[in-house]
Design a protein around this nucleic acid. Structure first.
Length: 563
RNA sequence: GCGCCUGUAGCUCAGCUGGAUAGAGCAACGGCCUUCUAAGCCGUAGGUCCCGGGUUCGAAUCCCUGCAGGCGCGCCA
C-alpha cells in the first residue's frame, strides 16, 4: 500500500492532471505537524484560473480520501494530507517483518550485471588512508546493487604492471632478503624500492638493469616471473587482511598485467574504424570535436597507455559479464581521463559506452596538506584501523566492563566508525584526514548507529520479546510515528543510492532512524505495564533494530548486539 | 589560458530534478542517569546560503557574469 501513490491518484480528478505527474509534485512537509504529504497548488493557478489558496481549499474540501489517509487540510497554497497513523504503522512494520533482511530491497535489477571497479591496489605498495574511499564506496555499492536484485561483479584492477617491477627485482637482488620480506611484507618491499631510487640517482646504470629485468618479465623469463609473482603474492596476502577486516571480497583481480595481450585488439579495431591518427609520433584519437584533448592510444615508441588498457578492460568486461553498468570508483583527478576514453568507446560504435560511469570521489589529504610518500606523512590504513580499534577497546572497558568478546566488539565498532565516516557525506567532498575527527564517536557516527542497534537489542532481550499480534493504534504518538516514518523512508533511500551511486544516502537514512529511535526510547517507556502498548513498542523496537542492521550491512558496518 | 568540481552556522556537512519560518553533528554554554545501554536525550547561542544580475507567483536550489579554493589539461597511472 503506497499512500503517496493513492493520494496522487485521488488528486487526479480535482487537479485535472494524470496521477503520475502529480506524484512528482507531492512533497514532504518540513514538520510532521504540517502533515505527511503536501500538495502545492501554485502551478494550478493558471489553468484553473484561481488563487492557489482557493484551489487548495477547494481540493481539501472535495477530495475523496484514499484508504489510510485521515485528513486533507488547506494551508496557504498547499493541501496537506495527514495519514492515519495506525494504518501507516501497520503498513510499514508489516513490510519490515515480512521482508526481514531483504527490507528495502527488490528485484528491479534482476538478470542484470553491474561491474564495480574499486580499490585497485598497487603491487608492492602499502594500503594507505587514501585507499579507504574507493574501497568502502565500491564495497557499499556492491552490496546496494545486490540488494536491489542486480548481480554485482567486484573487480580489483591491480596495478601490477610497469617498469617499477624491473626496479624491484634489481633492488631485491642487491639489497633484499627473502626471509626479511616474507616476515616484514610490503613495508620491506617499499624499503628496498626507496633505496633503489636513492642509489639510481647516483648510478643511472641501475635503470638500464631494471629495464632489462622488466623485459625479462615481459618475455616470460622464469626467474623474473618467479620474483614478480612473489611480490604480488606478498602484497595480496597483506591487503587481504585489510579486506578481511573490512568484510570485503572481490570476484576478480584481473589487473593491468591481465590485459597485456588484449590491447592489440583495441589498436587494430581503432585503426579499422579510422579513429587512429598519427600525431607527433603517437597514435591518438582526436577529440577536439568534443572539446577534449586527444586520447593517446600508443606512445611514439609504440607502447600502450593507461587509456588503451582501460578500453581493453571495458571490452573484455562487456564480453565476459555483459554488464548493464560498469562503475569506476576512482578519484576525481582522473575525470578527464575517463571522459576521454568513454568517448573513444562511444566513437567505436558501442552504444554501451553510456553504461560506463566514473564514480568519482574527493581526495584525502592531511591536516598538513597533501599526503605524499616523499614527505613521509602517509597514514597507513593498518595504523588507522588499529588506532580506532584500540580506542574503542578503551571505551568499552570504561563503559561496559562486563562485556564479553571485548576485542571482537572493539574491532566491529572501531572499523565501523571509519567506514561510516567515509560513507557519511557525498562522494565529491574532499576529506582532510584528522585523527580527532576519525576517533570521535559522538554524534553522527558509526558507533552512534551501532549503539542504537545494541540498545534496541538490549531491550528486546530484557523483555524476552516474542513476536505476536500488534495493536498498531498504540503506535500513534509523535515519537513512535517519527520512527515509523524514518523506517518507511529507507527503501527509497536505497534505490536513490543506487541510482546516484551515492552510498551516503543509505548512511543518512540509517542515521535518521537512529535519531528518531533514541528520542522515542527516551520519551516513551517501552516496557510499560500495559501489555498491548508494551507489545506494540517492542514490535517497533524490533523493526528498528532489523532495519538498522540491514542499513549497516549495506554500507559495510557491523551491527553488534551488545557494546 | 582552457576545462571539470566545490563554495550553506566558528568547524565538518545535509538540503540543490525550484515551494511554507534554511537543517544536523562537532566545538561552546546550561539541564537530564534510585526506569528499558548517558557512545544517549533536551535546551541556549550561532547564518549577507561567496558577490552581482536574470528567469519565476516563488530561488540556497535553474541561467549568465564575476570572486575564492581544489583538480586536470599528449606520450605516468
Amino acid at each position: 500500500m503506497d499512500f503517496k501513490q493513492a493520494i496522487a491518484a485521488a488528486l487526479s480528478t480535482p487537479a485535472g492532471l494524470p496521477a503520475e505527474e502529480l506524484y512528482t509534485w507531492l512533497e514532504t512537509p518540513r514538520s510532521p505537524e504540517m502533515g505527511d504529504y503536501a500538495f502545492p497548488c501554485f502551478k494550478l493557478a493558471r489553468t484553473l484560473k484561481n488563487a492557489p489558496p482557493a484551489i487548495a481549499a477547494q481540493i481539501a474540501a472535495s477530495i475523496v480520501l484514499p484508504q489510510g489517509v485521515a485528513k486533507a487540510a488547506q494551508a496557504g497554497g498547499y493541501v496537506n494530507f495527514f495519514l492515519d497513523k495506525a494504518a501507516r504503522a501497520k503498513a510499514v512494520l508489516e513490510r519490515v517483518f515480512d521482508e526481514g533482511e531483504r527490507y528495502g530491497g527488490s528485484d528491479m535489477g534482476k538478470g542484470r550485471n553491474v561491474c564495480i571497479d574499486y580499490s585497485s591496489v598497487n603491487i608492492a605498495k602499502p594500503l594507505h588512508i587514501g585507499h579507504l574511499p574507493t574501497t568502502v564506496i565500491g564495497a557499499a555499492l556492491y552490496r546496494i546493487y545486490n540488494h536491489l536484485g542486480f548481480h554485482s561483479v567486484g573487480i580489483n584492477h591491480l596495478g601490477d604492471w610497469g617498469t617499477q617491477f624491473g626496479k624491484m627485482i634489481v633492488a631485491f637482488k642487491r639489497w633484499g632478503d627473502r626471509d626479511t620480506i616474507e616476515q616484514g611484507g610490503v613495508d620491506e618491499l617499499v624499503k628496498i624500492y626507496v633505496r633503489y631510487h636513492q642509489e639510481s640517482d647516483q648510478n643511472p646504470a641501475l635503470d638500464d638493469e631494471a629495464r632489462a629485468w622488466f623485459k625479462r618479465i615481459e618475455d616470460g623469463d622464469a626467474e623474473a616471473l618467479e620474483l614478480y609473482e612473489w611480490f604480488k603474492e606478498i602484497t595480496l596476502k597483506e591487503v587481504a587482511q585489510a579486506y578481511d577486516i573490512l568484510g570485503i571480497r572481490f570476484d576478480s583481480y584481473a589487473g593491468e598485467s591481465f590485459y597485456n595481450d588484449k590491447m592489440g585488439r583495441v589498436v587494430d579495431e581503432l585503426k579499422e574504424k579510422g579513429l587512429l591518427k598519427l600525431d607527433q609520433g603517437a597514435q591518438i584519437v582526436d577529440l577536439s570535436d568534443y572539446k577534449m584533448p586527444p586520447c593517446i592510444i600508443l606512445r611514439s615508441d609504440g607502447a600502450t597507455l593507461y587509456a588503451t588498457r582501460d578500453i581493453a578492460a571495458a571490452l573484455y568486461r562487456k564480453d565476459t559479464y555483459d554488464f548493464a553498468r560498469c562503475l569506476y570508483v576512482v578519484a576525481y583527478q582522473q575525470d578527464l581521463h575517463f571522459r576521454q576514453w568513454f568517448k573513444v568507446v562511444e566513437l567505436m560504435g558501442y552504444d554501451w559506452a553510456k553504461d560506463l560511469v566514473h564514480v568519482s570521489f574527493g581526495m584525502v589529504s592531511g591536516t598538513e596538506g597533501a599526503f605524499s610518500t616523499r614527505k613521509g606523512n602517509m597514514v597507513k590504513l593498518r595504523d588507522v584501523l588499529s588506532a580506532a580499534c584500540e580506542k574503542t577497546y578503551d571505551i568499552i572497558c570504561e563503559k561496559s566492563p562486563d562485556l564479553e568478546d571485548k576485542e571482537v566488539v572493539a574491532k566491529q565498532v572501531g572499523v565501523g566508525a571509519l567506514v561510516w565516516n567515509s560513507l557519511y557525506n557525498g562522494r565529491i567532498k574532499d576529506v582532510v584526514f584528522d585523527w580527532d575527527l576519525v576517533l570521535n564517536f559522538d554524534g553522527e557516527t558509526g558507533p552512534y548507529a551501532q549503539y542504537t542497534h545494541a540498545r534496541a537489542c538490549s531491550v528486546l532481550r530484557k523483555a524476552d520479546y516474542k513476536p505476536g499480534a500488534v495493536d498498531y493504534a498504540r503506535l500513534t504518538d509523535a515519537e513512535s510515528s517519527a520512527v515509523i516514518v524514518a523506517i518507511g523512508a529507507f527503501p527509497d533511500a536505497v534505490v536513490e543510492a543506487m541510482e546516484k551511486n551515492e552510498p551516503y544516502l543509505v548512511t543518512r537514512s540509517v542515521m535518521n532512524i537512529c535519531t528518531a529511535f533514541n528520542k522515542f526510547y527516551y520519551e516513551q517507556r517501552i516496557m510499560t505495564d500495559d501489555a498491548a502498548v508494551r507489545q506494540a513498542r517492542l514490535a517497533l523496537t524490533d523493526a528498528t533494530r532489523r532495519v538498522i542492521a540491514v542499513g549497516l550491512g549495506l554500507i559495510g558496518v557491523a551491527a553488534p548486539e551488545r557494546m
